[in-house]
């Protein structure tokens, strides 16, 4: 019944459950007016060495004096020296985090959660569907997949945001668009005068994409309303419930299945998730 430490393929750093390590901010990049990406490195080189994770896992990040909160790791494990989190300003802690600059220090514990099951994805076609700030967890997986490109079939990325100003990772979107081994389609709900791309919600991109439901795994991250419609459309197009994979968001405190904030029934988003197949999500009731 008991599970081993670091079930997500990562090894927990630190000994006591709630004691963070110190991480230095290497750089801060503005993504949108309210979203920044922080590149981090653990101050202690041996801790940095031991910090291993898989895409889809998260960390508890502290801004000292303001507490801590969970953030998904946005960078890929294939690029371990550049640990990134992408954070939108939505409250007291994220406000405080946004005031920090390169050289600043934060607390970090983890990695936590199950993460995406890469083994199940080898050899398959992959479809990534992101909405707004939902791209960061997929960003980790996408770079992992691209760094092992030959092990996967077709790769399609569909990304939608409310407006061009809400698109994150713009440089990388350009890079993906230029790659011949990736198909990227981007759309915005509402264009501005400078936008010459597609307009419409992300589900409109399905009509421009040839999907192969029998060989494809679909990874969906974004706001609940977007997920709802994307998932419906995937099922209409023949995807099985096991082939649709998403991450759940809940209020979290401890990150290790003790505090009960993120419990759904007897399952814990922090420990049993945050990655679930749609079939598993359907069974989460209390």
């Amino acid at each position: 019944m008991n599970r081993a430490v670091g079930i997500g393929g990562g090894a927990l750093i630190g000994t006591d459950l709630y004691v963070p390590c110190i991480a230095r901010i290497l750089s801060v990049r503005d993504e949108t007016p309210d979203t920044k990406t922080f590149a981090l490195r653990l101050r202690d080189p041996s801790e940095q060495e031991r910090f291993q994770f898989r895409p889809g896992q998260f960390v508890e990040l502290s801004v000292f004096g303001h507490g801590e909160a969970p953030f998904c790791i946005a960078s890929s494990p294939t690029r371990p020296d550049n640990l990134q989190v992408t954070v939108r300003r939505t409250g007291q802690l994220t406000d405080a985090l946004h005031t920090l600059n390169a050289g600043g220090e934060v607390g970090l514990r983890g990695p936590y959660g199950n993460g995406f099951d890469l083994d199940a994805a080898y050899g398959r076609d992959l479809l990534f569907i992101g909405g707004g700030i939902g791209l960061p967890p997929l960003h980790s997986l996408i770079w992992n997949v691209l760094d092992e490109r030959s092990r996967f079939g077709d790769i399609t990325i569909l990304y939608g945001a409310r407006s061009p100003a809400n698109l994150v990772y713009r440089d990388e979107l350009k890079e993906w668009a230029e790659r011949r081994d990736v198909r990227l389609l981007v759309t915005v709900d509402q264009a501005d005068s400078a936008w010459d791309g597609r307009v419409g919600i992300v589900t409109t991109l399905f009509d421009r994409t040839a999907l192969r439901p029998e060989t494809t795994l679909a990874y969906v991250c974004g706001p609940p309303i977007m997920i709802k419609f994307v998932v419906q459309d995937l099922f209409v197009r023949g995807f099985a419930e096991e082939a649709v994979i998403s991450t759940l968001e809940r209020m979290m405190q401890c990150g290790v299945g003790k505090c009960n904030h993120c419990a759904i029934g007897h399952r814990y988003v922090c420990r049993d998730g945050p990655v679930f197949t749609y079939r598993q999500i359907k069974e989460l009731v209390e």
Binding site: Y18, S62, F64, G65, H66, G67, E68, A69, T90, G91, T94, E249, R250, M251, Q253, C254, K258, C259, N260, H261
Partner: peptide
């Protein structure tokens, strides 16, 4: 429980604080 930082003299003390699933804010997301 929840986890909060408290100021004590020149030190921040991170505390684990009893909480209750009966409070509305227990599951309130950012």
């Amino acid at each position: 429980f929840s986890i909060k930082d408290r100021r004590e003299c020149e030190t921040w003390v991170r505390c684990r604080i009893s909480d209750s699933c009966q409070y509305a804010a227990f599951t309130l997301e950012a």
